[in-house]
Amino acid sequence: MSAIVEMERISKAYEVARTPGLLGRRGADRALDVVTNFTLAVRQGEFVCVIGPSGCGKTTVLFLLAGIRDPSDGRIAVCGKAPADAVRVGLSSVIFQQPILFEWLTAEDNVLLPLRLRDPRWWWWPPRRARYQETVRQLLRTVELEQFARYYPDKLSGGMQQRVAIARALTLNPQVLLLDEPFGALDEITRDRMNLELLRLYDERELTILFVTHSIEEAVFLSDRVVVMSRGASARTGSSIVREVRVDLPRPRRLALKEDPAFFQKVREGRAALREAQVAD
C-alpha cells in the first residue's frame, strides 16, 4: 500500500509584521514558523487525525493539503499530484470549520455547485442536467436531508448545514477528504451523530480521511492514527509533530466504544502527548 497523501519535511512561515512603506514598497519584518519539518504519509484508506493546541498550525497543514496555501519548504503530494491540482480535479475535497454555504442557493443548489463550476454549460444539455440533479438527490439522501433539498441554508440547523457541506464535498466523488474541525461548533450529541455519519461514509466510499480537531476523544474515536502537533517545533523531534499515537481499536466503531477501557487508554496516551506538546511550546 502506497501513500496517497505525502508531506515531506514541510515548513510554512507567515509574515506577521509589516512595515508600511511609501509607494507600495513594504518589507516583511518577521516571519512566524507555523509548521516546521512536518513529515506525514497517509496510506490509502487510512483515517488520520491531527490534533494540537490552538495556534499550532493544524489548519495550516490542512490548507497546504488543499492547495490554498503553498509551503515555504518541502515536498507535498496528494494522489501523486500537487495539492491544488488534486483538489481541482476532484481527487481530494475540503470541508471547513464553517459550512460556508451560499445563502442565496437552496441546499440542493449548494450541493450542485462543484458540478456547475466544473461544467459551465451544464444547463443547456437536459440529460446531463437530469443526471447532475440525480447525483445531488442521492448525496442529500446520503446525508439524510432529502426532504430539505429546497430549503435555504438559513432555515437549517448548524448540524444540517454542515451535512449539506459534507454532501457538497462528496459531489465530485473524491478519494481523499480533508476536514478542518468540521464539528467544532456543534453540541456533543450532534457531534457524536456526525462522527458516526462520517465513519459510515468513510466505510461506504472507501475514503482516505485527514481530520483536524482539537478534541482527543473525537480523534481517538474516529482515526487509525493521531498526529499530535505542538506550537513551534518540538525540541525532542525537531519538528511540529510531537508524537503519533496509533489507534488500533476495532472497526466498525460504535458509540459504546467510548465506554471501553481500551478507548480510555488511547485517550490517556493522546492527552500525555498533548501535554508534551504544551511543554515543548
Partner: peptide
C-alpha cells in the same frame, strides 16, 4: 473562505 471555496472548485 468563500473565495477559497471557489478556488478549490476551480471557478473561473
Amino acid at each position: 473562505m468563500r473565495e477559497y471555496l471557489m478556488d478549490v472548485y476551480n471557478a473561473g
